[in-house]
């Protein structure tokens, strides 16, 4: 089975995470999370199994960390409120002097705000068998850099250039990162979530 073969091949690279997904629900079979510097190795392994490249793209997770923190704070606050309510209820019921619940810590203190990230997504597919592999990697948003795979899959050249156009992600070793779809002198990256025309 191609899926198992490619799974073992990729597992040898010790990626961050490999998930088998339901093709009918997600549209792809294998979801691989790697660190940025593992991308060329993963691409090479995938190339060995005669996959072809569908696309390379990015996703800007701007504000994701803040949202996570806010969400965590909300959960925590809710939990604290619940605990306080429970304590109050208990106090009412028991009438005993219960030690007051500890004041909830300030959220900013406990969860430090991680830097925002951008995700680079590589789609691969196979000509003979129905198997789609998605390789993802995350790069920090303030310094988005990762190695290119355009020497392994020549088709990635344009896809990476486009990703650079749209997100400003730099692919190290790429032959030519001048804007492809945007005007030649463009210095903006329109698909960033904080982009304003």
């Amino acid at each position: 089975m191609l899926r198992d073969r490619i799974k073992t091949a990729l597992a040898a690279l010790s990626p961050l995470e490999i998930t088998e997904t339901d093709h009918a629900k997600k549209g792809y079979d294998l979801d691989v999370q790697v660190s940025p510097d593992q991308v060329p190795a993963a691409a090479e392994a995938i190339r060995q199994e005669e996959f072809f490249i569908e696309a390379v793209t990015g996703v800007d997770w701007f504000g994701e960390q803040a949202a996570i923190v806010a969400e965590a704070a909300k959960v925590k606050a809710a939990a604290a409120k619940k605990a306080a309510a429970a304590a109050a209820a208990a106090a009412e019921a028991g009438g005993e002097a219960v030690p007051p619940a500890p004041a909830p810590e300030a959220p900013a203190e406990e969860a430090e705000l991680l830097p925002d990230v951008m995700e680079v997504v590589y789609d691969f597919s196979h000509y003979q068998e129905n198997c789609r592999v998605v390789v993802r990697t995350r790069v920090p948003r303030d310094n988005p850099e990762l190695p290119t795979i355009s020497s392994i899959f020549q088709g990635a050249n344009w896809h990476e250039r486009e990703t650079h156009d749209f997100f400003g992600i730099r692919f190290l070793g790429h032959p030519d990162l001048t804007p492809l779809l945007l005007p030649e002198d463009a210095d903006f990256h329109p698909l960033l979530k904080d982009f304003k025309a």
Partner: peptide, 9 residues
């Protein structure tokens, strides 16, 4: 065929 694979044709 190999060129197709490399370029995603």
């Amino acid at each position: 065929a190999d060129m197709c694979r490399r370029y995603g044709v």
